[in-house]
């Protein structure tokens, strides 16, 4: 997992609520058995005018000029701004994979669907919850000013706007630490292997049928 601590970037506005994981990465692209390569089909149904099928070169496709991410100013955006309940729907982890593969590092929204939120953190994508009013202000600012930028500081847990206003956000200390250090969960858990084994032997004596 890649380390993350600070990032300044243009903010891409995706002005919709309930962006579901099927919109993020439509199911016809889930058939891969790999973890990478999904970025070209991120928001496929919105980004292109022709129906997307796996294996088709994006260069050959008809791009939807009205879709926000297709605007040049957002080509290098690493921060996505959206509305409430981002990432709802199917638990597919391909959604954060696609967002990361495309180049996003941070998603800011008033709320996220639980599974998506966790999947993102585990993959090094930082979901930031800010109050709906703050998000609304940001949308306004983004629409007002082409190439509006914000600074995200994970260490200090704030988002700083171009107007130098700092919005603090909450994140689990543990999760923050993992992101800051680029730590893999599995190695961390395996360092507690003895405790896991102790749990098993206790459970086995109480509920032996679980081990047959």
């Amino acid at each position: 997992m890649e380390k993350f601590s600070r990032l300044k970037s243009v903010v891409a506005p995706l002005d919709r609520s309930n962006v579901d994981t099927d919109a993020i990465i439509p199911k016809q692209f889930l058939k891969s058995i790999k973890r990478t390569g999904f970025g070209k089909n991120l928001f496929d149904a919105w980004r292109y005018l022709d129906p997307g099928e796996p294996g088709v070169d994006p260069e050959e496709r008809e791009v939807n000029p009205d879709f926000v991410l297709n605007r040049k100013v957002y080509a290098k955006a690493r921060i996505l701004l959206s509305r409430e309940n981002f990432g709802c729907g199917s638990s597919r982890e391909h959604a954060p994979w696609a967002l990361i593969d495309y180049g996003f590092k941070v998603i800011i929204a008033p709320s996220f669907a639980d599974i998506f939120y966790n999947n993102s953190l585990k993959n090094g994508l930082l979901p930031i919850v800010l109050p709906a009013t703050v998000v609304d202000e940001m949308f306004k600012a983004v629409f007002l000013k082409e190439g509006y930028e914000v600074l995200v500081d994970l260490n200090e847990k704030f988002v700083q706007t171009a107007e130098n206003i700092k919005h603090r956000f909450e994140i689990d200390d543990f999760r923050r630490d993992c992101l800051l250090r680029g730590l893999d969960d599995i190695g961390l858990t395996l360092s507690h292997a003895e405790e896991i084994k102790r749990f098993e032997s206790r459970q086995k004596s109480q509920q032996p049928w679980l081990y047959k």
Binding site: R35, R92, E93, P96, N119, K122, I186, T189, E200
Partner: peptide, 20 residues
């Protein structure tokens, strides 16, 4: 609970899941 693929790997490797 439904989990993502990283968690599938985590459960495979450790028999545990990190939960809040």
């Amino acid at each position: 609970v439904g989990i993502g693929t990283s968690e599938v790997e985590h459960v495979l490797a450790t028999q545990c899941l990190m939960q809040k």
